[in-house]
Design a protein around this nucleic acid. Structure first.
Length: 606
DNA sequence: TTAGGGTTAG
């Protein structure tokens, strides 16, 4: 008789167990058999040993042992192990809840989500009660399949069976609803969780980040820090950093960075990348570069964060160098990296380089160009005034034209005053999408610039008829930890008197420096004086006056605005940076402008 | 008697 340890060593030495003559005399207990099965190295070995045990009648005498064998096989993780597990499962006379759970989990682990759902239905039809172990896996299957309908039905079952209070089930529900975009349902479950675990928080925080609910994400994150007593959770930090990047919350981003440095000895690549992105998007390009350079390993995501960061700051050439560096490091570009690079070229007017990158992308053929890539190319050409070529690009697109490419052409036509081409772009754009108030504004501004007031009125009427309202422009500035928001001709701020006095003073100094207001930027049919008045009160200027009054001399002024800057505000801010000897960073809709000593980092190309 | 949930960056 061969003892279990002998067989164990046979298995370990990978001998052919089946052909070993001693094997026929093998006797072992069920536990020993199970132990040996667990020691198998692959599914073939497992099958052979399992078959031999059955032949020797050593095994499967009890339902419990059958369940154990099934579970060992189903969770082994080998390729095709679920196939064999299914054959074991099918010969079990009365599969119990545990067996179904085993199979469902096995299928979910090997990403056969439909199969998992199918088995659940079979289980319910056979009248076998699912338990609290069934649902987490099953809900994960729904999450991955984005099967919200099935997910909701299953939630109903959970409720009926009284399993709604199980924290594992709850966490799976939070994630399922969150990933399927049902944020209200997701947070409804979250609210019900009595003792929230790290998993509850991270599913909720990351769900918010994924759907772009940035302020909710940050509020939850703050709450999480309070409730969990600042327990370091990398995934939550990454989601929060991403929210900071997207809302420009530099101070919070910096405190998260500080927290990470104090509590985590080695930051992983995702955390580091989100730091690079956060600093770049919050206007601290130097800091982003510093972190980027110190990183031991970088991937596509790291590079694309850095490249788009450079693009945001108008550092097109540096972005291109970064792109070459990435290729030299042996990393392959993907569609997002191409978007970043093309965008960088576009922001800096690097037409030749941008065209070359686009052509290389086509030639390499590894990345299928999307409408987004064409959008970048159209933008690149259009901004540079190559409007005909931009139109040709759109017309030659091998994929469906979308609103983005026409919108981009339209806005270039407005900038370069080509009404004829602009009309074509406007027509095509409105065919594809007519719910965007911004589109009507660009159209009406284009006509206004050409003094075509009738067409302006037509566009405005059409917009009003559709019930679309103009997004009011605003500028935000942080002073002593508090964010102040100003609209154009702001009359609401408690310090308005001082602010307007300051504006008046600034204007005098500007006049000495040869500034004269550019009234062509006021695209409304009013008289010259009214135009001057309106120009004077642009929200950025109001914010600037406020910042000059209430921030220490020499400190950097950071302004964030929701719309693109008009060229008068641009000239104005350049002069102010010189007169008051201040660095002024303005983040507009598309990019950053760093004003310093009378010049801007965008080199007047934006 | 066996087992389960979340998670991150461009």
């Amino acid at each position: 008789m061969i003892k279990a340890p002998v067989l164990q060593s046979l298995l370990a030495s990978r001998d052919d167990v089946i052909h070993n003559p001693e094997f026929n005399n093998f006797r072992a207990t069920e536990q020993e058999c199970l132990y040996l099965l667990k020691r198998c190295k692959n599914i073939e070995e497992f099958k052979q040993v399992h078959a031999r045990f059955i032949k020797l009648s050593l095994f499967c005498s009890s339902p419990f042992s059958a369940s154990s064998v099934l579970s060992t096989c189903a969770h082994s993780g080998w390729d095709t192990s679920m196939h064999y597990a299914a054959s074991i499962f099918r010969v079990i006379d009365d599969p119990c809840t545990f067996d179904y759970n085993t199979m469902i989990r096995g299928y979910v682990n090997e990403t056969s989500f439909e199969e998992a759902l199918r088995l659940y239905i079979e289980m319910v039809e056979k009248g076998i009660d699912p338990d609290n172990f069934t649902y987490p896996c099953l809900l994960k299957a729904c999450t991955r399949l984005k099967s919200i309908r099935e997910g909701k039905q299953i939630h109903g079952h959970v409720f009926k069976l009284g399993l709604e209070a199980d924290v594992f089930v709850q966490n799976s529900l939070i994630s399922m609803y969150g990933r399927c975009g049902e944020m209200a349902l997701s947070s409804a479950v979250f609210e019900k969780v009595e003792s929230k675990t790290a998993a509850s928080w991270s599913s909720m925080v990351s769900s918010c980040a994924r759907v772009g609910m940035w302020s909710e994400c940050l509020n939850l994150f703050r709450e999480m820090c309070r409730e969990t007593n600042f327990k370091a959770e990398e995934s939550g930090m990454v989601s929060a950093l991403s929210a900071c990047a997207n809302t420009g919350a530099l101070n919070l981003g910096m405190s998260i960075h500080g927290f990470l440095l104090r509590n985590i000895s080695k930051l992983n690549i995702a955390v580091q990348t989100s730091l690079v992105d956060m600093y770049a998007k919050c206007g601290c390009l130097e800091k982003a570069l510093e972190i980027f350079k110190k990183m031991e390993t970088r991937n596509n995501l790291t590079y694309s964060a850095m490249i788009s960061g450079l693009a945001l700051h108008g550092e097109g050439e540096a972005a291109l160098r970064m792109f070459s560096e990435m290729i030299e490091e042996g990393l392959e570009s993907d569609h997002v990296v191409y978007v970043s690079v093309l965008n960088a070229c576009s922001q800096s007017g690097l037409v030749i380089e941008g065209r070359r990158v686009f052509e290389e992308m086509l030639k390499e053929g590894k990345v299928e160009p999307t409408a987004e890539h064409y959008g970048c190319l159209v933008d690149l050409l259009g901004r540079a005034g190559l409007l005909e070529e931009a139109l040709e690009t759109i017309e030659s697109m091998p994929i469906k034209q979308n609103d983005v490419v026409w919108r981009s052409l339209l806005s270039s036509c407005r900038v370069h005053g080509n009404v004829e081409l602009g009309k074509i772009a406007a027509r095509e754009l409105l065919k594809l999408s007519s719910q965007n108030p911004g589109d009507y504004l660009v159209i009406s501004n284009m006509y206004a610039q050409a003094q075509m007031w009738e067409d302006v009125a037509k566009a405005r009427t059409e917009m009003a008829n559709k019930g679309l309202k103009q997004t009011p422009g605003f500028s935000m500035v942080e002073v002593k930890g508090k964010t102040h928001r100003f609209v154009s001709q702001d009359r609401f701020h408690p310090q308005r008197k001082e602010i307007y006095k300051m504006l008046h003073q600034m204007e005098w100094q500007l006049k000495f420096e040869g500034y004269s207001p550019d009234v062509t930027q006021i695209l409304v049919n009013v008289d010259e004086e009214e135009k001057r008045e309106r120009l004077k009160g642009h929200s950025q200027k109001v914010a600037l006056a406020f910042a000059l009054l209430y921030t220490p001399p020499g400190s950097i002024i950071r302004i964030a605005r929701n719309l693109r800057m008009c060229s008068d505000c641009h000239t104005y801010t350049k002069k102010i940076s010189m007169i008051y000897e201040r660095e002024i960073v303005v983040r507009d809709r598309n990019r950053f402008h760093l004003f310093k000593g009378g010049t801007c980092s965008c080199k007047d190309y934006w």
